[in-house]
Design a protein around this nucleic acid. Structure first.
Lengths: 356, 356
DNA sequence: TTAATTTCCGTGTACGCACACAGAAAGTTT
DNA sequence: AAACTTTCTGTGTGCGTACACGGAAATTAA
């Protein structure tokens, strides 16, 4: 592991190659106007030494401004996307010195048309890079095609579409996270106890993420505890009718007095928690996703037993950081990055931070 | 959230205050030779606008070289400290452009004298900052006193000593991590099954970290499952006698045929795993700490059931990063940073990375 | 009032790189 | 061989800050 001081400058290369700094610069940036003779002289030197430009000086000298845009669902106070937003803001602060500016464009995640509109506004004023939460598949395909045509790099966060050539993806392996949820849920449960699997529909749409988690959950079940399948009770709730939901659950708990656990595969477990707090069922394990403030509150109270987290701030931050490393610093980056599947319980929630 | 372009330069302040750039510079850096009149003029402008220096230009102009040194135990191939080392190396690459160079000083973690020696060598050639894994308490106290005298900031990693004024600490809450280990271990265990708690002594020394984890473990037990206490079987192994260890465990397993779980509180679970692989006990839960390659291998094989991790690379990296933010960028930083208590099982180990 | 100090302040240069521009060298046409 | 192109290359300037230096202004001494 060489710790070479990297104090080789363009000036040094010029001297070694017997040409001027300007010529070295032209060779380095491949912008022609160099005789074959000079080019070879410089190349030879470059082959022998290990030159890496001083990024600080580069940033200072370069007038190039980078405009990044991130396309995410509206971040209503405290929902999942608030965390994503925060990650981007942190990256913005970090890379402001490198002439990078960030712009948010958001949409209604339950309305494809608002997504299309958001895309249009981005295409109107082409940025230098884009970060996309590809909630709507077909629209995203079209969008990325347009970006491709304009040679604009883009990254996916949260979920991805494999068919297109994105720069990076940060997100969780949803199937596996459902699988793990099942493992933890079933590990300390007595057999023959009932499990509610709660789904909430809105505009008839269920997100891919949510669906995959459910599949992972069921996969664990069939692979490891096939006998338990009969104990899984699917429950459907409304997105916007608290009273009706409470009634549905009240009836269900009466029908299944041997209820031991409840799981939902989206981030709104706190609503379940509030229902069950009202219904007051002892020793009930409520499990869900993501560290919304409300969820964490119920976790600490012991009403939610376990949360699976995926570091949304870091997804956004790393995504932005990698784009900078790619565009500005010419570094190699990893394309697909699965976030750790973090298991949070009352006892380790306090130490959970994202350290940005 | 203002996204102001921060394009206010010293030159602008000078113009607004009706003085020269040099004067503004003198005021900003508080280095005197400025009349009261001028100083006030500049201060007034500074109060009204929101100036933050261009860190890139600062780094380029500043000839100040920062020499950082990190003091950690020898990183024998693949042990815990290899990961810490890696974190520092990544930080070194990241901050090389800011004239920061890193130097490693290491010692034998089972030999206090080697620690003292290492300290001496550091004090001989004072660095600009130090990172310390304070394995030996008294020696560390003396060391930090010397650093304090020379106005050299330092940070702790892995463990900390509260009495001294360190800059940051990154590490795990060991007590709590033992507590959580107990919770997971006992959740899916049948009552009346035996649990081996394995300790390994070396030179008669047991690390604080390890001890605290054990305490946390026992705390959970007495708080939540007091009846289980009688099932805890303490086992003592040798640090360097594989054959004897195997024999001890062979006898113990014969004596306790209803053995269900084994836990150790240091990172060398892989040795336990290999013993029990040899002894071939079905349905045994082996639990331990840290993601050494060997540990991960056994985890994937299903021989180790659960590992508790603490992101040592990130501890080192963040520690170094914070020092830079403090010394170079004048940013606010958080003093005590507990690392998340990561729960790793076969199913989520593949997605576990540190993203640096 | 002038000379000698001391205090104060503006200008200039450097950091390493990007990029413009003028002018040298080489090649082409008459 | 002169005039004209085209190709090539060195120098110079700017990015925003740090810091040195020389000299102006203010203060004190003569």
């Amino acid at each position: 592991m060489k710790n070479l001081p990297t104090n080789i400058r363009i000036k040094d290369i010029a001297r070694l190659a017997g040409v001027s700094e300007g010529t070295v610069d032209r060779v380095l940036h491949n912008r022609g106007e160099v005789s074959k003779r000079s080019k070879e002289a410089v190349s030879n030197v470059l082959d022998q030494i290990d030159y890496s430009p001083n990024v600080v000086a580069q940033a200072l000298a370069s007038k190039k401004k980078y405009r990044f845009v991130y396309l995410i669902p509206h971040n209503e106070m405290g929902n999942y996307w608030t965390a994503v937003l925060k990650g981007f803001q942190l990256a913005a602060a970090e890379y402001a010195a490198y002439n990078v500016s960030f712009n948010q464009v958001s949409f209604n995640q339950f309305d494809a048309q608002s997504y299309t509109q958001a895309i249009q506004s981005i295409l109107q004023d082409l940025p230098d890079a884009a970060f996309i939460a590809p909630i709507f598949r077909d629209e995203t395909l079209e969008f990325t095609r347009a970006l491709k045509n304009s040679n604009i790099p883009f990254s996916f966060i949260d979920s991805k579409i494999d068919e297109v050539d994105f720069l990076t993806y940060y997100g969780q392996n949803s199937l596996k996270s459902g699988y793990i949820a099942a493992k933890f849920l079933l590990s300390d449960l007595q057999e023959n106890k009932k499990i509610f699997v709660v789904r909430t529909k809105r505009n008839g749409a269920v997100s891919n993420q949510t669906l995959n988690r459910l599949h992972g959950f069921m996969q664990y079940l069939t692979e490891n505890k096939p006998a338990w399948s009969k104990n899984i009770i699917p429950i459907e709730l409304f997105d916007d009718d608290e009273a009706a939901n409470l009634q549905i659950l009240r009836e269900a708990t009466l029908q299944y007095p041997d209820l031991a656990a409840v799981i939902t595969f989206n981030s709104k477990v706190y609503r379940l928690a509030s229902y069950f707090q009202a219904l007051n069922i002892p020793n009930l394990h409520v499990i869900g996703y993501d560290l919304l403030d409300e969820n964490v509150r119920y976790l600490k109270q012991g009403i939610i037993a376990l949360l699976i987290a995926q570091q949304p701030e870091n997804q956004a931050y790393f995504s932005a950081r990698d784009m900078c490393r790619f565009l500005i610093f010419n570094k190699k980056i990893t394309k697909v990055n699965y976030m750790p599947i973090d298991i949070l319980i009352k006892e380790n929630i306090d130490d959970y931070q994202h350290f940005l």
